[in-house]
Design a protein around this nucleic acid. Structure first.
Lengths: 87, 87
DNA sequence: TAGGTATTTAGACAAATATCTAAATACTGT
DNA sequence: ACAGTATTTAGATATTTGTCTAAATACCTA
């Protein structure tokens, strides 16, 4: 969970997540959505990967990124537990 | 949401949240749960307050902290939207 | 109002983070 | 095997963050 919360604590990474919610994208396509250098985006993708928020698969010349929503199930559970009225 | 994600990106602050889930506590009581100086805890509480995760009310000599779960509703919504299958 | 307890503010410092440019790696097609 | 495209790795730098100690503020009680 630590890595997940770290991954979510950045507007760029949250925007990447929202982009990937629409459809899978290559690293280059993701980078085009930002005014940030490709290496920086690559770094953000690395953190998202470490947190298991995204999965990277090479497709020939490209590396395609997609969301792994599994990890959000855990987050949803964490939040729901907090919201439960009875201790 | 930015402040909320920042607030959640720290193990100490997440533990504070879980302590406050059990019952309201004074700043001192919270500090006792950690091997961290009181000023540091005070700083964490400040961030949690900024994120509207906690509410502070002075009760005489003490300042009592309690959770404001409202902000987690928003987070739950954010997570649920991500998990929605369609689009 | 003086002394004690609770908490925060101020200021310093080390570690972590986001960003950049330059270079390295991996693949494609001729 | 070479030239081009896609992406990451390396190394540097400025900013942010978590922590500390010392001092300030706020309240209580005698």
């Amino acid at each position: 969970m630590n890595a997940l919360f770290k991954a979510l604590d950045d507007p760029t990474r949250r925007k990447i997540i929202e982009l990937l919610r629409e459809k899978d994208l290559s690293a280059g396509e993701i980078a085009e959505a930002f005014n940030i250098s490709k290496p920086s985006i690559s770094h953000h993708l690395e953190l998202l990967k470490k947190a298991e928020v995204v999965v990277a698969v090479r497709k020939g010349q490209f590396i395609m990124y997609s969301l792994n929503t599994t990890v959000f199930d855990e987050l949803a559970k964490w939040v729901m537990d907090l919201l439960k009225k009875d201790k």
